[in-house]
Amino acid sequence: MSIHRDGADERINIAIDGPAGAGKSTVARTVAAQLGYVYIDTGAMYRAVTLSARRAGIDPLDTAALAAHASGLTITLAPGKEGQLVYLNGEDVTAEIRSRDVNLHVSQVAASEKVRSLLVAKQQELAKDKGVVMDGRDIGSCVLPGAELKVFLTASVKERAQRRFIEAGSALGVTLEQLEKEIAERDRMDEQREFSPLKIAPDAILLDSTSMSINEVADAIVSLSRTKLAEAK
């Protein structure tokens, strides 16, 4: 699986990591659009596996069954008018992978070493020709350790919960206080998982978006990318 690009020698790969609700996907999409790069939402891939496993009644903690199930799935990411579309075995699951049930179980699925190995291989294949903006939890530290620009995007737990509540609180059927607790717990699980935990790569640039707008964050990353591209020449 690959993407044809022209002028690969004039492109770099950009890795954007960070905790849940930091705005990684929105920022990464914006940056990719401004640079004419390809956006790859790795979190959507784990969410698609989670959704499929839940539908099949597979316990996310049953790593053997989970890995066997994941190996038979076809996950496709495609551009859409309102953002990236996610297809699971040909079915558009873009909205369903953002459900509360998937939110509550995706960290368990993402902790599976075999599932991560399977999806990381696909992600690395997509990025081999450069010109990719990829976001997730371990992109700079594991998936694309050679990325020319690595950004660790964060914000306070309170701010992240507020953003997600405004975005989809009523649809999730949860209070702001409960959402804040769930995000804090998601942080804990992501940071403490055994394989590829959430962490800041040594050469990543820390960017706190608590008091920044999406456009301000995207503009900062675009500026950094142009500096890195100039350095790479």
Rank of each mutant, 00 (worst) to 15 (best):
I214C: 00
V222G: 03
L66F: 14
S225I: 07
A171L: 14
K150A: 00
S52D: 12
V174K: 06
S225F: 06
A127R: 05
D203Y: 02
I58Y: 01
G140N: 09
R137T: 06
S117M: 12
K233N: 14
V132G: 03
S196G: 12
A64G: 07
Y39G: 04
A65R: 10
V38Y: 10
R188Q: 07
L104Y: 00
V157F: 02
R100N: 10
V86Q: 02
M1G: 15
V27L: 10
A184V: 02
L119M: 13
I40W: 04
I221W: 05
L66T: 09
A32Y: 05
T76H: 06
Y87H: 14
K128Q: 12
V157G: 03
D41L: 05
R11Q: 10
T50M: 04
S117Q: 15
K158T: 06
S211T: 03
R47W: 05
S25A: 11
D9L: 12
A161L: 06
Q108F: 08
A56Y: 04
E180M: 12
G18F: 00
R186S: 02
Y87N: 02
I221P: 07
R226K: 15
A68D: 14
G83T: 05
V27N: 04
A53E: 02
G83M: 03
V174I: 15
A232H: 15
E10P: 00
S170D: 10
S25C: 08
Y39M: 06
Q192I: 09
P60S: 09
T76W: 01
A53L: 10
R160A: 07
S52W: 02
D129M: 06
A33H: 15
S196C: 15
A22H: 00
I14Q: 03
A15Y: 02
G36C: 09
E177R: 06
N13D: 12
R5H: 09
A33K: 15
A28I: 02
S156N: 07
Q84R: 05
K199L: 01
E96D: 15
R11E: 03
V151H: 01
D6H: 12
V93Q: 08
L73W: 09
L172F: 00
Q124A: 08
I183C: 01
L119I: 15
E91S: 11
S112A: 06
A111I: 11
D203E: 14
G131A: 07
Q108L: 13
G80C: 06
N13I: 10
D59M: 06
E167Y: 03
G83P: 07
A28G: 11
L118E: 10
E231K: 11
S209L: 02
N13W: 08
L172R: 13
I3A: 14
L207K: 01
D9V: 05
R100D: 04
D92Q: 08
N103Q: 11
L206K: 08
P197N: 11
I16A: 03
M45A: 07
L85C: 11
A70D: 08
F165Q: 01
T26F: 12
I12D: 06
I12A: 02
L149P: 01
E148W: 12
N89C: 14
A201Y: 15
